[in-house]
Design a protein around this nucleic acid. Structure first.
Lengths: 337, 337
DNA sequence: ATTAGCCACTTGCGCGGGCTAGTTCCTCTA
DNA sequence: TAGAGGAACTAGCCCGCGCAAGTGGCTAAT
């Protein structure tokens, strides 16, 4: 094999020349440019020739000429990419891809990457899952990017996804529990999320006329979980809403090893509907979040922002739903220490 | 505030005009173009004006003109991004950044993203940590990218990092153990890694004149770990080398809960030197891998490939080192079933 | 006196493709 | 039979920047 000399890349010009048409025509075909009429014969000729020559668009040239990079940047927080998040991203990516956009994910690292990614690739939109860190939105704007989602100016619309904690509380209340605790995760990286969910739970409790829930952040260890359970038991707690399924699992495991029964002595409900939650013994009641649906929604949100169309309606399929299983049960009206 | 009319972006032309110099001069200053002599006065004038006008380079135009995107793409496998991997990436990113390149990470998702990232952003190099999946290298080449690391044509140089398993075996052998088992992780996503390390361990055992190690992949559950331990104990195994610290922790925990002592009855050594390993009780012997150093090395490797300079020497600081702690001990010459 | 060479720049082409403003040809009326 | 109108294209500018090739002025060497 000859060490393939730097064989120039195939351009629209090559296609045009070899077909005896103009570059513009080729461009129109390749982009399905609206408002252009191209005969079916020419269209297929161009497409075939492009295929034959192995044409691939030059994204940089396209970006330069059109002013749009067709790249959507998703700024991720520093949390571990768990099961549900990955599904979410994947689905958003797919949605965007179908519209000709590419999703790039990026985690700004603390140890100061000098040139943030949004400067290097000029995305059309920058997304984030929670909200932009202080100063971050300004930095992105300064790089010439005008479309940020969620809009840093808009008030935080906490409401549109995270109704999971509300469902947890409603479920437990419905089972007759009145003394409920909230178990967060003691990890600074997700502190914001934990606090957000807890607040949501607290509000729901108030709305339901329950007494204010007591909360505590635990580590995923037996000791930590047991200590929390011990305190809550002495305070008369009969049900726990957990930040996520991992926390619920830790609590349930600790409770069982500590000689309690679940849900007999203690009802515990998680959130996320991870595969683990249904394999656990007892199977954990939890909240299912349609991550795939959320991902698609995020993708459509980005598209609407780019194309200036009205934002997609948040479909009901995206609301969290309760998955009652074996770790929650009606309050037993028995001896209470 | 006037809804800032679409205020055109600042270009080198603007700087040049406002300073009364040519665009080229501005470009030379902004890029420190070698082989060009620019007076200090002009240089600072240009820099100041660029600053004042808020100039930011247009990456697409730069890519188009120069033929290089200054982007390095790191294709990640589908594993969870654990502690050490993140450090690794971060360090590589930093190294590249200092040379004016940007590292973008990307995980191809199974559910078929239509347009892989390397087509959308035309990176100068595509890196991967292990090796390219079958067909992947060809796909990348087809997109016009010529620089792949590791070179798919080169024979796998298994040797340059993963001497960790060898160290594990040597350590255990040195302590007098002769019947040693290897515990992998039963997760299809990391199967290649597991197999690679196990092979490495196996080879070392042979080289040391030990009898072939028996191996088994476990899940991170008590039952799975206990079952493995039980079988190995009946086979006379006195020491276990684990795929990583998590596996070592699972085994150690299970052994203790199963009534054995570690390292009294069983020596166990992990790999990765995760924070967990030193917090465990007993503290786990493990292998430290200089992930930060490896990250820097990867970055330099990419740079050398782009700039055509000879590849960096793999410094000794990148070799794995043994961290002997409390979970391994000399073989007890006692009753052996 | 001529030439060579350096300094500090400038001119201008081209990267690949989008897109506006034509142009040509054909068909269909009145 | 002219003219309107549309279908099916083409010409050519422009995007912002890199870079090769120049350009005039000046000094140092032949």
């Amino acid at each position: 094999m000859a060490t393939s000399m730097p064989t120039r890349r195939v351009t629209t010009y090559d296609i045009a020349k070899s077909l005896g048409v103009s570059r513009a025509t080729v461009g129109f075909v390749l982009n399905d440019t609206p408002g252009q009429t191209i005969s079916e014969a020419t269209r297929t000729k161009v497409l075939q020739e492009a295929q034959r020559l192995g044409y691939r668009r030059h994204s940089a040239a396209r970006t330069l000429a059109s002013g749009r990079s067709h790249i959507v940047l998703l700024v991720l927080p520093d949390w571990p990419l768990d099961f549900s998040l990955r599904r979410n991203i994947e689905e958003a990516s797919l949605t965007l891809d179908q519209a000709g956009y590419t999703l790039v994910t990026y985690t700004p690292h603390s140890s100061g990457q000098a040139r943030p990614l949004w400067e290097s690739i000029q995305p059309d939109v920058v997304l984030t899952l929670n909200s932009f860190a202080p100063g971050q939105a300004e930095a992105i704007r300064a790089a010439g990017i005008t479309r940020l989602i969620p809009d840093p100016e808009a008030p935080p619309s906490e409401d549109y996804i995270d109704n999971g904690p509300a469902l947890q509380l409603e479920h437990l209340a419905e089972l007759g529990h009145t003394v409920i605790a909230y178990a967060g995760l003691n990890d600074p990286k997700v502190a914001d999320l934990v606090n957000g969910r807890r607040d949501r739970a607290q509000k729901t409790a108030t709305a339901l006329g329950l007494r204010p829930i007591s909360w505590r952040n635990i580590n995923l260890t037996d000791e930590s979980a047991l200590a929390a359970i011990h305190d809550w038991r002495t305070a008369g707690v009969t049900a726990i809403a957990a930040y996520n399924d991992d926390v619920a699992a830790a609590l349930t495991g600790a409770a069982l090893r500590g000689g309690l029964t679940v849900p007999g002595d203690l009802s515990i409900i998680g959130l996320d509907n991870t595969p683990l939650s249904s394999m656990f013994q007892p199977q954990l009641s939890t909240i299912n979040v349609d991550t795939a649906g959320l991902g698609r929604y995020l993708g459509r949100l980005a598209l609407s922002s780019i194309e200036g169309t009205p934002p997609p309606a948040a479909g009901p399929e995206m609301r969290a739903t309760l998955i009652p299983r074996a770790s929650t049960a009606p309050l037993q009206e028995t001896e209470n220490s």
